[in-house]
Design a protein around this nucleic acid. Structure first.
Length: 400
DNA sequence: GTGTCATGCTCGCTGAGCCTGACACT
């Protein structure tokens, strides 16, 4: 059941049923659950919920009673972040009729009392008292969709999407693609979608569109096309590989201070004549040409202020924006930051490997699905056919 | 009664294991 939409609906359910309801006392955990106790107790509190991706956050907020003495033992609000595993959900029932597998219970202060329960049949779900959204999760596909409206140069430094790309690589890649650094990431990535004519081939004799089979385009033709017009993903692979192939003459030269090979290879980053701007995260992006529609408003650099003009304002100036310092100096300056970046990349590579494994596992799972299931699984279908059939059968059996 | 499968995630390794319930099959 629980994917993003289900978790969001669960948060709405909690907020709806708990609106105006006062909860009281301890938060009760089932004995069998291995999750941690929730160290929260309060005479009167309310519950609200929000969601982000596959997480739901319950906020327990104490209600201040009138006449409560100041300086008394006041309860503190608490956030509890839930992950639903394979079978988690919330139910609001009478306290005497707790659902089976209700592993965390919040009781109302009414008589008879009612209970909001976190129900989890398989116990793969978890909760984290005083928790927050997991930091290694990407943006919520439902409510942080606008993340992809950020400039491509900023998205490229997000290691969740481009694990391994740093400041010099993004500059080189965008330069080679002739892409404005402040173009919307969505626009650039949308360009990766196959064009209609590549996806569909009209067979006049049938009057139908058929998917173009891989085999219908020869491998050599594909390679030729790729070499002629590589896309951003191609370059995110090939450009770093070029650096690797420099051996000991790349960014971290084996000979101290011998940046000559690397400098000769750079086409944009710190190259005299190229422009540079600070992106919205304060990182300097090097580029050529128009910065793009989302470029930040340029504040006057001290030099420009003295000259009385904004960066990039003077169209006659071929070097719009901040001109680069001599390459070697700039490279050395960047090295510290790059080293930090490498440490971060290392810690994140673990996650990437996991994701790859998951991907391969899920594809295995798909292979195991029957042909019927594959054909009838519609995008967004919450219940797989096999399980859906089972539950429907169960229901009909019960009904009968 | 047994085996398999299910929408997630972690550990520590490239799959196994955590869990329960429903269903198919013998």
């Amino acid at each position: 059941m629980p994917e993003g939409p289900e978790l969001h609906l669960a948060s709405r359910f909690v907020s709806r049923v708990c609106a105006g309801v006062v909860f009281s006392g301890l938060v009760e955990k089932s004995e069998v659950s291995k999750n941690s106790e929730v160290p929260f107790t309060c005479d009167a509190y309310c519950i609200t919920a929000t969601s982000r991706g596959k997480e739901v956050r319950l906020t327990l907020t104490p209600i201040k009673e009138e006449g409560e003495p100041h300086g008394g033992k006041a309860c503190q609000p608490m956030d509890i972040v839930f992950r639903f595993g394979m079978s988690g959900f919330f139910r609001f029932t009478a306290g005497s009729e707790l659902p089976k597998h209700a592993h965390l219970r919040f009781y109302t202060n009414e008589t008879p009392r009612r209970a909001l329960s976190f129900v989890d049949v398989r116990r793969f779900g978890s909760w984290e008292p005083n928790g927050d959204w997991q930091t290694d999760r990407g943006p919520c596909v439902m409510f942080e969709y606008q993340t992809f409206d950020k400039p491509i140069c900023e998205v490229m430094l997000n290691q969740k999407y481009f694990n391994g790309i740093g400041n010099y690589l993004r500059a080189e890649i965008l330069y080679r693609l002739k892409i404005s650094p402040f173009m919307k990431a969505r626009t650039v990535l949308h360009g990766l979608l196959p064009k209609k004519r590549e996806l569909l081939e009209v067979k006049p004799e049938q009057g139908q569109c058929q998917p173009l089979q891989d085999s219908e385009m020869s491998l050599s033709k594909k390679i030729k096309m790729k070499m002629e017009s590589p896309d951003i993903l191609d370059l995110c692979h090939s450009v770093p590989m070029e650096v690797i192939n420099m051996g000991g003459k790349g960014y971290d030269p084996e000979k101290p201070d011998d940046y000559s090979t690397f400098q000769a290879w750079l086409q944009c980053y710190y190259v005299p004549g190229m422009k540079s701007l600070r992106d919205h995260n304060g990182r300097t992006i090097w580029f050529q040409g128009d910065p793009g529609p989302l470029a930040p408003k340029v504040s006057k650099s001290p030099k420009a202020k003295r000259k009385g003009k904004k960066q990039g304002e003077d169209k006659t100036d071929k070097q719009q924006g901040v001109k680069g310092e001599p390459p070697a100096k700039g490279i050395k300056k960047e090295k510290e930051g790059a080293q930090n970046k490498r440490v971060k990349s290392h810690s994140e590579s673990k996650k990437t490997k996991e994701n790859k494994r998951k991907g391969s596992r899920s594809s295995e799972g798909r292979k195991q699905k029957s042909k019927l299931e594959r054909e009838e699984d519609a995008p967004g279908t919450a219940v797989p056919r096999s399980q859906h059939q089972r539950s429907m059968q169960t229901k009909s059996e019960k009904d009968s």
